[in-house]
């Protein structure tokens, strides 16, 4: 069956934004598995703005189909500069909407992209909580 992708999906696939590995990230999130055909990895660099944690820089690497690559790319673009709380609330509908829609069978890709981001934020929060605990000792 021919897959009909929106212009926006194809743009992100052709020239993905924020693509590549990050050296010394503050946190990393990863979801999916190779057996199913999608693995998404998100790297975060966290900064402070008005006393809040914000995403100062973000990068991704994705193994997967066209929409897997496009959804991670657009996700990084959407949350760069946002606070961690705002970024965490990103839903699959936000991601798919920003891309001008996804074929129904590909909706799970947009889910995975926001899950990878949430995984990275969770890991960051765990790490900072541990650091605080350690400082307390």
């Amino acid at each position: 069956m021919a897959m009909q992708y929106s212009r926006k999906v194809m743009e992100h696939f052709k020239s993905p934004k924020n693509m590549g590995e990050m050296k010394n990230p503050d946190a990393v999130g990863m979801v999916g598995n190779q057996r199913c055909g999608d693995v998404m990895k998100i790297y975060l660099m966290v900064g402070k703005k008005d006393g809040k944690d914000i995403i100062k820089d973000i990068k991704f690497q994705t193994y997967g189909c066209v929409s897997a690559i496009a959804t991670t790319s657009v996700t990084t673009e959407m949350v760069k500069g946002k606070t961690l709380d705002e970024a965490y609330k990103l839903t699959r509908d936000d991601v798919a909407g920003k891309l001008g829609g996804l074929p129904p069978i590909k909706m799970h890709c947009s889910n995975l992209a926001s899950e990878a981001l949430q995984d990275a934020i969770d890991n960051y929060r765990k790490k900072t909580a541990n650091n605080k605990n350690n400082e307390g000792e």
């Binding site: 693509m19 693995v39 994705t62 193994y63």
Partner: peptide
């Protein structure tokens, strides 16, 4: 060759 190289760069594997 180009496409495989590009996609492997995007991939975390």
């Amino acid at each position: 060759r180009e496409s495989v190289e590009t996609l492997r760069k995007i991939s975390p594997l």
